[in-house]
Amino acid sequence: MEYLLILTEDDDEFACRTDERAGDYWAEWTAFVGEINASGIVRYGAALQPPSTASTVRVRDGVRSVQDGPFAESKENLGGIFVIDVPDLDAALEWAAKRPRSGSAEVRPLLGMAPADD
């Protein structure tokens, strides 16, 4: 089954990427990314630029508006994603639990071909 791992970070974590803590930050993430890639389950993976680089577009009544920043203000923001292919939820949860540093990891199954009875 395919799952999306949605990895979030708070502002302080995003700051770690560039301040004096960057060494630890990148070492820990590189180790995790190396391990999950080596396992052969990764379909796609990417780290994201911080939420301050986000733009949100809405179209209402045919009128397009662009907003500076992410869709919703929140304490934790999307920092990176992986699409993985593993046998079941337990396997996906296990990988999610291995994410380094603080922040959550939401696990969502991908909607494959839509089943007819849904």
Partner: peptide, 8 residues
């Protein structure tokens, strides 16, 4: 069913 919670 959808999230693949295993029977084990």
């Amino acid at each position: 069913k959808v999230a693949g919670v295993p029977f084990r």
